[in-house]
Protein backbone atom coordinates (compact mmCIF):
# COMPACT_ATOMS: atom_id res chain seq x y z
CA UNK A 1 0.00 0.00 0.00
CA UNK A 2 1.49 3.36 -0.96
CA UNK A 3 0.55 6.96 -0.24
CA UNK A 4 2.14 10.35 -0.57
CA UNK A 5 3.61 12.10 2.44
CA UNK A 6 4.18 15.88 2.27
CA UNK A 7 4.83 15.77 -1.49
CA UNK A 8 8.51 14.86 -1.14
CA UNK A 9 8.34 11.31 0.22
CA UNK A 10 6.57 8.19 -0.93
CA UNK A 11 5.35 6.15 2.01
CA UNK A 12 5.03 2.37 1.71
CA UNK A 13 3.33 0.17 4.28
CA UNK A 14 4.54 -3.43 4.31
CA UNK A 15 2.20 -6.37 4.93
CA UNK A 16 3.93 -6.70 8.33
CA UNK A 17 2.57 -3.26 9.26
CA UNK A 18 5.88 -1.40 9.06
CA UNK A 19 5.79 1.94 7.28
CA UNK A 20 8.84 3.32 5.54
CA UNK A 21 9.21 6.22 3.18
CA UNK A 22 11.39 6.93 0.16
CA UNK A 23 12.60 10.52 -0.30
CA UNK A 24 11.72 11.70 -3.82
CA UNK A 25 14.24 13.54 -5.95
CA UNK A 26 13.46 17.09 -7.02
CA UNK A 27 13.19 18.27 -10.61
CA UNK A 28 16.37 20.34 -10.28
CA UNK A 29 18.58 17.48 -9.13
CA UNK A 30 17.15 15.22 -11.85
CA UNK A 31 17.90 17.82 -14.49
CA UNK A 32 21.44 18.19 -13.14
CA UNK A 33 21.90 14.41 -13.30
CA UNK A 34 20.64 14.43 -16.90
CA UNK A 35 23.13 17.16 -17.82
CA UNK A 36 25.96 15.17 -16.19
CA UNK A 37 24.93 12.08 -18.17
CA UNK A 38 24.99 14.05 -21.41
CA UNK A 39 28.52 15.17 -20.50
CA UNK A 40 29.54 11.56 -19.80
CA UNK A 41 28.19 10.38 -23.16
CA UNK A 42 29.95 13.27 -24.92
CA UNK A 43 33.23 12.52 -23.14
CA UNK A 44 33.09 8.79 -23.95
CA UNK A 45 32.14 9.56 -27.53
CA UNK A 46 35.01 12.01 -27.95
CA UNK A 47 37.39 9.14 -27.10
CA UNK A 48 35.64 6.61 -29.35
CA UNK A 49 35.36 9.25 -32.07
CA UNK A 50 39.15 9.41 -32.34
CA UNK A 51 39.30 5.68 -32.97
CA UNK A 52 36.53 5.98 -35.56
CA UNK A 53 38.52 8.70 -37.32
CA UNK A 54 41.39 6.26 -37.67
CA UNK A 55 39.07 3.64 -39.19
CA UNK A 56 37.62 6.28 -41.54
CA UNK A 57 41.13 7.01 -42.79
CA UNK A 58 41.36 3.36 -43.91
CA UNK A 59 37.77 2.91 -45.10
CA UNK A 60 35.46 5.91 -45.10
CA UNK A 61 32.28 3.91 -45.55
CA UNK A 62 32.92 1.45 -42.72
CA UNK A 63 34.16 4.26 -40.46
CA UNK A 64 31.03 6.28 -41.18
CA UNK A 65 28.79 3.28 -40.42
CA UNK A 66 30.59 2.63 -37.13
CA UNK A 67 30.27 6.30 -36.23
CA UNK A 68 26.48 6.32 -36.75
CA UNK A 69 25.87 2.96 -35.08
CA UNK A 70 28.32 3.61 -32.26
CA UNK A 71 26.78 6.91 -31.25
CA UNK A 72 23.29 5.41 -31.43
CA UNK A 73 24.22 2.44 -29.25
CA UNK A 74 26.06 4.66 -26.77
CA UNK A 75 23.37 7.34 -26.44
CA UNK A 76 20.44 4.89 -26.25
CA UNK A 77 22.21 2.05 -24.48
CA UNK A 78 24.11 4.06 -21.83
CA UNK A 79 21.15 4.94 -19.55
CA UNK A 80 19.59 1.48 -19.97
CA UNK A 81 22.82 -0.41 -19.29
CA UNK A 82 23.92 1.72 -16.32
CA UNK A 83 20.50 1.85 -14.70
CA UNK A 84 20.26 -1.91 -14.94
CA UNK A 85 23.83 -2.70 -13.89
CA UNK A 86 23.90 -0.17 -11.02
CA UNK A 87 20.32 -0.87 -9.93
CA UNK A 88 18.71 2.37 -11.02
CA UNK A 89 21.71 4.66 -11.26
CA UNK A 90 23.55 6.32 -14.12
CA UNK A 91 26.82 8.16 -13.54
CA UNK A 92 24.89 11.43 -13.14
CA UNK A 93 22.49 9.87 -10.65
CA UNK A 94 25.35 8.32 -8.66
CA UNK A 95 27.11 11.67 -8.39
CA UNK A 96 23.94 13.44 -7.25
CA UNK A 97 22.78 10.63 -4.96
CA UNK A 98 19.68 9.66 -6.94
CA UNK A 99 18.30 6.24 -7.81
CA UNK A 100 15.45 4.93 -9.97
CA UNK A 101 13.24 2.68 -7.86
CA UNK A 102 10.06 0.71 -8.26
CA UNK A 103 7.11 2.88 -7.24
CA UNK A 104 5.76 0.07 -5.05
CA UNK A 105 9.03 -0.63 -3.34
CA UNK A 106 9.72 -3.80 -5.33
CA UNK A 107 12.86 -4.80 -7.18
CA UNK A 108 13.51 -2.73 -10.32
CA UNK A 109 12.79 -4.86 -13.40
CA UNK A 110 14.61 -4.76 -16.78
CA UNK A 111 11.31 -3.95 -18.53
CA UNK A 112 10.89 -0.90 -16.29
CA UNK A 113 14.39 0.36 -17.06
CA UNK A 114 13.97 -0.14 -20.82
CA UNK A 115 10.53 1.45 -21.08
CA UNK A 116 11.26 4.53 -18.96
CA UNK A 117 14.16 5.19 -21.30
CA UNK A 118 12.15 4.56 -24.49
CA UNK A 119 9.53 7.00 -23.21
CA UNK A 120 12.30 9.59 -22.82
CA UNK A 121 11.69 10.37 -26.53
CA UNK A 122 8.35 11.90 -25.53
CA UNK A 123 9.55 13.44 -22.26
CA UNK A 124 12.22 15.56 -23.96
CA UNK A 125 9.65 17.19 -26.27
CA UNK A 126 9.50 19.88 -27.49
CA UNK A 127 12.95 20.69 -26.00
CA UNK A 128 14.88 20.50 -22.70
CA UNK A 129 12.59 17.86 -21.14
CA UNK A 130 9.65 20.27 -21.09
CA UNK A 131 6.98 17.54 -21.21
CA UNK A 132 8.80 15.43 -18.62
CA UNK A 133 9.45 18.45 -16.41
CA UNK A 134 5.81 19.55 -16.46
CA UNK A 135 4.73 15.98 -15.78
CA UNK A 136 7.04 15.66 -12.78
CA UNK A 137 5.77 18.96 -11.38
CA UNK A 138 2.13 17.96 -11.78
CA UNK A 139 2.22 14.33 -10.64
CA UNK A 140 2.06 13.34 -6.99
CA UNK A 141 5.24 11.27 -7.07
CA UNK A 142 7.26 13.64 -9.28
CA UNK A 143 7.17 11.24 -12.22
CA UNK A 144 7.89 12.08 -15.83
CA UNK A 145 5.78 10.22 -18.42
CA UNK A 146 8.40 7.46 -18.68
CA UNK A 147 8.22 6.90 -14.93
CA UNK A 148 4.42 6.87 -14.97
CA UNK A 149 4.35 4.15 -17.63
CA UNK A 150 7.21 2.11 -16.17
CA UNK A 151 5.90 2.43 -12.61
CA UNK A 152 9.13 3.95 -11.33
CA UNK A 153 10.13 6.88 -9.15
CA UNK A 154 13.46 8.65 -8.68
CA UNK A 155 14.58 8.71 -5.05
CA UNK A 156 17.36 10.37 -3.10
CA UNK A 157 19.92 7.95 -1.73
CA UNK A 158 22.41 10.26 -0.07
CA UNK A 159 22.30 9.96 3.72
CA UNK A 160 23.23 12.99 5.85
CA UNK A 161 26.54 12.66 7.62
CA UNK A 162 26.31 12.60 11.41
CA UNK A 163 27.75 15.79 12.91
CA UNK A 164 31.19 15.72 14.53
CA UNK A 165 29.94 16.03 18.08
CA UNK A 166 33.29 15.86 19.86
CA UNK A 167 34.39 19.17 18.36
CA UNK A 168 31.17 20.83 19.50
CA UNK A 169 30.69 19.28 22.93
CA UNK A 170 34.24 19.47 24.23
CA UNK A 171 34.03 16.19 26.18
CA UNK A 172 32.63 17.63 29.42
CA UNK A 173 30.50 15.63 31.86
CA UNK A 174 26.85 15.63 30.80
CA UNK A 175 24.56 15.88 33.80
CA UNK A 176 21.43 15.28 31.65
CA UNK A 177 22.41 11.98 30.01
CA UNK A 178 22.26 10.08 33.32
CA UNK A 179 18.53 10.68 33.56
CA UNK A 180 17.41 8.06 31.06
CA UNK A 181 13.69 8.63 31.39
CA UNK A 182 13.89 12.39 30.71
CA UNK A 183 16.51 11.88 28.00
CA UNK A 184 14.06 9.56 26.21
CA UNK A 185 11.31 12.15 26.58
CA UNK A 186 13.60 14.86 25.18
CA UNK A 187 14.31 12.73 22.09
CA UNK A 188 10.60 12.04 21.66
CA UNK A 189 9.48 15.65 22.01
CA UNK A 190 12.14 17.27 19.85
CA UNK A 191 11.28 17.81 16.18
CA UNK A 192 14.17 17.41 13.67
CA UNK A 193 14.13 21.13 12.80
CA UNK A 194 14.69 22.14 16.45
CA UNK A 195 17.44 19.54 16.91
CA UNK A 196 19.19 20.80 13.80
CA UNK A 197 18.80 24.43 14.92
CA UNK A 198 20.51 23.60 18.23
CA UNK A 199 23.48 21.91 16.59
CA UNK A 200 23.77 24.67 13.99
CA UNK A 201 23.83 27.29 16.76
CA UNK A 202 26.68 25.47 18.53
CA UNK A 203 28.64 25.00 15.33
CA UNK A 204 28.37 28.72 14.50
CA UNK A 205 29.15 29.87 18.04
CA UNK A 206 32.28 31.75 17.05
CA UNK A 207 30.46 33.64 14.30
CA UNK A 208 27.96 35.11 16.77
CA UNK A 209 28.55 38.27 18.81
CA UNK A 210 28.43 37.74 22.61
CA UNK A 211 25.00 39.40 22.81
CA UNK A 212 23.57 37.36 19.94
CA UNK A 213 25.09 34.22 21.44
CA UNK A 214 23.35 34.83 24.77
CA UNK A 215 20.09 35.59 23.00
CA UNK A 216 20.15 32.52 20.65
CA UNK A 217 21.35 30.02 23.26
CA UNK A 218 18.87 31.42 25.81
CA UNK A 219 15.86 31.04 23.51
CA UNK A 220 16.86 27.54 22.41
CA UNK A 221 17.57 26.36 25.96
CA UNK A 222 14.21 27.71 27.11
CA UNK A 223 12.48 25.86 24.28
CA UNK A 224 14.14 22.57 25.30
CA UNK A 225 13.44 23.16 29.01
CA UNK A 226 9.74 23.50 28.23
CA UNK A 227 9.65 20.35 26.10
CA UNK A 228 11.56 18.18 28.59
CA UNK A 229 11.96 19.80 32.02
CA UNK A 230 14.78 17.69 33.48
CA UNK A 231 14.33 17.61 37.27
CA UNK A 232 17.06 18.00 39.91
CA UNK A 233 20.38 19.74 40.30
CA UNK A 234 21.84 18.23 37.15
CA UNK A 235 19.76 20.68 35.14
CA UNK A 236 19.26 23.63 37.46
CA UNK A 237 22.75 25.11 37.67
CA UNK A 238 23.76 24.97 34.05
CA UNK A 239 24.29 28.00 31.85
CA UNK A 240 22.08 28.19 28.75
CA UNK A 241 25.02 27.32 26.51
CA UNK A 242 26.07 24.30 28.58
CA UNK A 243 22.45 23.18 28.82
CA UNK A 244 22.24 23.32 25.04
CA UNK A 245 25.49 21.34 24.64
CA UNK A 246 24.14 18.65 26.95
CA UNK A 247 20.82 18.54 25.08
CA UNK A 248 22.61 18.14 21.73
CA UNK A 249 24.72 15.31 23.14
CA UNK A 250 21.59 13.52 24.38
CA UNK A 251 19.92 13.96 20.99
CA UNK A 252 22.80 13.00 18.71
CA UNK A 253 25.40 11.03 20.66
CA UNK A 254 23.58 7.67 20.70
CA UNK A 255 24.12 7.02 16.98
Amino acid sequence: MTRLVAESRLSIRTPEGVEFSLPLAGTGSRMSAAVLDIMVVSAVWSVIGRLVTLIEAVNKDIGGAIEILGYFVLSVGYPIATEWYWRGQTVGKRVLGLRVADARGGRLQPSQVILRNILRAVDILPALYLVGGISSLLTAHRQRLGDLVAGTIVTQTRQPEPPELDQILGGRFNSLSGNLRWAARLRQETPPALANAAIEALMRREALSPEARLDVFGSLAEEFRQRAPFPGEGADHLSDEQYLRNVVEVLFRSR
Binding site: T14, F20, P23, G106, Q109, Q159, L186, R187, E189, P191
Partner: peptide, 28 residues
Protein backbone atom coordinates in the same frame (compact mmCIF):
# COMPACT_ATOMS: atom_id res chain seq x y z
CA UNK B 1 11.59 9.77 18.29
CA UNK B 2 11.33 12.75 16.01
CA UNK B 3 14.87 13.96 16.51
CA UNK B 4 16.36 10.64 15.39
CA UNK B 5 16.09 11.55 11.71
CA UNK B 6 19.35 9.98 10.57
CA UNK B 7 18.76 6.71 12.38
CA UNK B 8 15.21 6.54 11.04
CA UNK B 9 16.40 7.18 7.47
CA UNK B 10 19.04 4.47 7.85
CA UNK B 11 16.47 1.94 9.07
CA UNK B 12 13.95 3.00 6.40
CA UNK B 13 16.59 2.41 3.74
CA UNK B 14 17.42 -1.00 5.22
CA UNK B 15 13.78 -2.09 5.54
CA UNK B 16 12.97 -0.73 2.06
CA UNK B 17 15.77 -2.71 0.43
CA UNK B 18 14.84 -5.90 2.28
CA UNK B 19 11.17 -5.36 1.43
CA UNK B 20 12.07 -5.22 -2.26
CA UNK B 21 13.87 -8.57 -2.01
CA UNK B 22 11.20 -10.32 0.06
CA UNK B 23 7.95 -9.03 -1.39
CA UNK B 24 8.87 -8.85 -5.09
CA UNK B 25 6.65 -11.36 -6.86
CA UNK B 26 7.53 -10.61 -10.49
CA UNK B 27 9.80 -13.24 -11.96
CA UNK B 28 13.08 -12.18 -13.52
Amino acid sequence: LQAEGDLRRYLESLVGRAYAEIHETRQT
